[in-house]
């Protein structure tokens, strides 16, 4: 049984059937990629997992519990962390503070009024955050203004923030979109390392085939809101249906 089970999910926006009878089964401690051409419904599907969108039909179960109808913060507290297409970090805060917030959230829950302690007096949280920064190779940037970092560093920080909560499922929405080649390769290395070193399930949406085939254990191809094929990477590469949907008629010919 998978950690994330998606059954018969459908979502309609006006006249557009964005998702139609989507079935997905993400096994624990694997990296599952969801690929597909533009407009296939990948991001819509991801938004259904995190409480941003409510599907019209179907169910989304995480570890045996439904996530539907819950708010994003509740879903996060269940153990799902999400990395966005454009890095979403706290730009006005320092890198260390960015890293401390998710750790506070993990320890104290959705709201706690700790208005009288000094934030840096919480030794175990500061140490945990520093440790995470070292893991992400950004210990030297701890005092930096997060908004002033490069795209690649922001991405690293965002991934680090998600990992600091020790989520069971990490959702990545095109983590290398708009990145230079070097940054992309760094991100791939980082994700590989995460996959190897941690007990974590990763679900990734990606355009870049290089990224997908370097990371994924299992691939689902989505086209026009419907899953086309689900298989291992080797089989996906040569699959005629996939080539047709994804790479276009000429490539298939």
């Amino acid at each position: 049984m998978g950690i994330l089970e998606v059954k018969n999910v459908g979502k309609r926006f006006g006249g557009l059937q964005a998702l139609n009878k989507v079935e997905l089964d993400v096994k624990e401690n694997t990296c599952h990629a969801i690929i597909g051409p533009n407009g296939a419904g990948k991001s819509t599907l991801l938004n259904c997992f995190v409480g941003k969108l409510m599907p019209d039909t179907g169910s989304v179960m995480f570890d045996g519990q439904s996530v539907l109808g819950r708010t994003p913060y509740e879903i996060n507290q269940m153990g799902i962390s999400r990395v966005f297409q454009t890095p979403e970090i706290f730009g006005d805060l320092s890198v260390l503070e960015n890293m401390m917030i998710p750790i506070f959230a993990k320890r104290d829950g959705a709201f706690r009024m700790h208005a009288f302690e000094n934030m840096f007096a919480e030794k175990e949280i500061v140490e945990h955050a520093e440790h995470m920064l070292e893991d992400m190779n950004m210990a030297d940037k701890r005092e930096m203004h997060a908004a002033s970092m490069s795209r690649g560093d922001k991405r690293r920080l965002e991934i680090g923030m998600c990992l600091s909560q020790e989520p069971r499922l990490l959702l990545l929405d095109e983590p290398t979109a708009g990145m230079a080649r070097a940054d992309t390769n760094n991100t791939i290395d980082l994700l590989k390392q995460i996959k190897d070193e941690r007990d974590i399930t990763i679900a990734i949406i990606e355009h870049d085939m290089h990224v997908v085939f370097s990371l994924a254990d299992r691939i689902t191809v989505l086209a026009q809101g419907t899953p086309l094929v689900e298989d291992d990477p080797e089989n996906i590469k040569g699959h005629p249906k996939v080539r047709e949907a994804y790479l276009g008629e000429t490539a298939a010919a």
Binding site: V50, P72, D92, F104
Partner: peptide, 21 residues
């Protein structure tokens, strides 16, 4: 305080806050 840091985080990025639990 951590509370003050959370308030600054609200100003900075509410989306990230929600997805951080």
């Amino acid at each position: 305080s951590p509370f003050g840091m959370m308030l600054r985080a609200v100003k900075s990025n509410q989306q990230r806050m929600n997805y951080t639990g």
